[in-house]
């Protein structure tokens, strides 16, 4: 139900400790990218139904940005990863 989030650093913590930043799917364009790319990044959302990635900030814990994989129809949580770790894994690919 997304009431408990298992932070990779702090363990299982209540939802109220986190601040939710929003969709983690949009990728930040390069600073020199065209306005169109920035418009898409800032404003346009796929908003899919089902399994999604979302940034959660553990403000009342380790203060790390986490990526929560979640189903937005059943509210089931599949996994929680540190955002930096995910970024590094993406860079390795």
């Amino acid at each position: 139900m997304a009431s408990l989030i298992t932070c990779p650093h702090c363990g299982t913590r209540p939802k109220e400790e986190f601040s939710i930043r929003g969709a983690a799917a949009p990728k930040r364009p390069s600073p020199t990218a065209k306005d169109e790319a920035w418009h898409r990044y800032v404003y346009v959302r796929d908003n899919p139904k089902g399994r999604i990635l979302e940034y959660w900030h553990h403000v009342a814990g380790c203060r790390r940005f986490l990526v929560v994989e979640r189903d937005n129809l059943t509210h089931e949580v599949f996994g929680v990863t540190d955002a930096a770790e995910l970024e590094r894994a993406g860079a390795d690919e």
Binding site: M1, A2, P14, K15, I52, L73, H75
Partner: peptide, 12 residues
């Protein structure tokens, strides 16, 4: 505060 398509909410 989290994205949701469910017509029910969280106890918090």
């Amino acid at each position: 505060f989290y994205s949701s398509y469910a017509q029910r909410g969280n106890l918090a």
